[in-house]
Computed example of a mutant assay.
Amino acid sequence: MFYTIVHLSTVIVLFLSALTHYYWVLKPDAEPSSKVIPYIEGVPAFHASKLGTFLVASALLLVTLFVMELGAGIIGLLPTYILKIGGTLLAAVFIVRAIGDFRLVGFTKKIKDSTFAYYDTRYWSPLCALIGLSLLYITWGS
Rank of each mutant, 00 (worst) to 15 (best):
G132W: 02
A30V: 07
T108E: 06
V11Y: 00
P126V: 11
V25F: 02
K109T: 01
W124C: 04
F46A: 06
A59V: 15
G42L: 03
F102M: 11
P32K: 06
L51R: 14
E31G: 08
F116G: 00
T88P: 01
L8H: 11
L61W: 11
P126Q: 11
L16W: 04
A91H: 05
T64Y: 05
I95H: 01
P79V: 10
F102W: 06
G73W: 11
K112I: 09
Y3L: 03
L19C: 08
T139G: 05
P38L: 02
T139H: 04
V93Y: 01
A91C: 06
G132C: 03
G73S: 09
A30E: 09
A57R: 00
H47A: 13
S142R: 15
L83Q: 05
T139M: 06
L130I: 11
L136P: 10
F94E: 01
T108W: 10
V11L: 00
L136S: 14
I75S: 12
R103S: 13
E31A: 13
G73C: 12
S125Q: 02
F66H: 12
A18R: 00
G52I: 10
T115E: 14
L83G: 02
G86T: 04
L65K: 10
S49W: 01
L55E: 15
I111P: 02
W124E: 01
L83I: 07
L61C: 12
M1G: 13
A91S: 15
I5Q: 07
L62D: 09
V105R: 00
P38M: 03
I74V: 15
L70I: 10
V93A: 08
W140Q: 07
L127R: 15
G73R: 15
L16E: 04
L8D: 09
A117S: 15
W24I: 04
G106N: 09
S34K: 10
L19S: 05
T4I: 12
M68I: 15
I37H: 08
S9D: 01
F107Q: 04
E69N: 13
T88N: 04
A48H: 00
I111R: 03
P28D: 05
A30K: 07
G132H: 03
G141P: 03
K35I: 01
V13C: 02
S34C: 06
A57W: 00
L26Y: 09
K35G: 06
